[in-house]
């Protein structure tokens, strides 16, 4: 599974004090499985709603490639961010900062999986999808992780594009092409990312400040972050209705998107108006921000689920 296993796991290798401490679960954790869930789901929806359809075996292979590529990018991200992960409470127990996996092994693991996922995607479906998959890995690792994350409070806004690629890749895997609809799905996730992540950063700002990561609450304060969560949610709702505007989806989707949007707006309003001190720090243990973060996860699942059901059931 990795270089570390080979280095320390030879039949004659005597166990010693520097023995490999990694469990299989540590290698799995490198793939950021929780992030992968959303990536797989949105990629699957992109594939299911695409015209023409795809052979089920090739569809499963494509989804597997999207999942592995996302995990590989996550592993390389953990390799690069191991210094800041070590000082953030939320990430200090990850396998690299905890010393269970050597940084070089994690990098090798991520690179091998990246190349393998792109190659298999190309062989199983088409090279348009493989190209988008490769670009999504590049975007997350180089543009977001290495370039933007430590330099600008806009890191999440631009870097959010990395998480928005899966439906485009899913669509491309099924059709060999990218048109207006996959770009709309991209735009939905792109606009959803800032309020989702900034809600989290409102209560995790201490971690980011310690790690000197310029997240919005660290650079511009909690009050401005609350305002931006509201602004991006307001901007998100009309974008979610775009599939209906362009005639791709019907009233079922439009109704669900409107309802979900109304709840998201209400949640963001709670974040904006929550009891806070003069700097915008919560006086209620960030209850509104935590609830909004949780809701935003269900929101995206429900929205993309509605998109798929509208297309597949109500056609």
């Amino acid at each position: 599974m990795s270089g570390a296993t080979v280095e320390n796991g030879g039949a004659q290798a005597p166990p010693n004090a520097s023995a490999d401490l990694s469990e299989v679960s540590d290698w799995f954790a490198l793939l950021k499985p929780r992030v992968m869930t959303l990536v797989v789901f949105t990629g699957l929806v992109g594939m299911l709603v695409a015209p023409g359809g795809i052979h089920p075996v090739l569809g499963v292979a494509a989804i597997l490639c999207i999942a592995i590529a996302a995990g590989a990018a996550g592993a390389i991200n953990m390799w690069y961010d191991r210094d800041i992960d070590a000082v953030m409470r939320r990430t200090a127990r990850r396998p690299i900062p905890a010393g269970r996996i050597a940084p070089g092994s994690a990098l090798g693991f991520g690179l091998v999986l990246s190349f393998a996922s792109v190659a298999v995607m190309g062989l199983a479906t088409n090279w348009v999808a493989a190209g988008w998959l490769a670009f999504s890995i590049f975007f997350y690792v180089v543009i977001y992780t290495m370039w933007l994350k430590r330099r600008t409070p806009q890191n999440i806004v631009i870097g959010g594009a990395a998480g928005a690629f899966p439906p485009v890749i899913g669509w491309a895997a099924a059709t060999g092409d990218v048109g207006l609809m996959p770009l709309i799905m991209f735009a939905i996730i792109f606009m959803w990312t800032p309020p989702h992540f900034w809600a989290l950063s409102l209560w995790a700002h201490g971690d980011y400040a310690r790690a000197k990561v310029p997240m919005l609450p660290v650079t511009h304060g909690a009050r401005e972050t609350r305002r931006q969560v509201m602004i991006y949610t307001v901007a998100l709702v009309p974008v979610t209705l775009a599939p209906w505007f362009v005639g791709f989806s019907g009233l079922v989707y439009a109704g669900v998107a409107t309802l979900l949007g109304a709840v998201f707006l209400a949640q963001s309003w709670r974040v904006l108006r929550e009891a806070q001190d003069e700097t915008g720090r919560s006086l209620a243990n960030d209850a509104a921000a935590r609830a909004t973060f949780r809701f935003s996860l269900y929101y995206l699942f429900a929205l993309f689920g509605a998109l798929a059901i509208d297309k597949l059931v109500f056609g």
């Binding site: 023995a19 490999d20 469990e23 290698w27």
Partner: peptide, 19 residues
């Protein structure tokens, strides 16, 4: 390495090889 550590090491290695 103590016998307990050696056992744990071998268990981890076996699990990785199966994976």
């Amino acid at each position: 390495m103590t016998p307990e550590e050696k056992t744990a090491f071998e268990r981890r290695r076996r699990a990785r090889n199966w994976a």
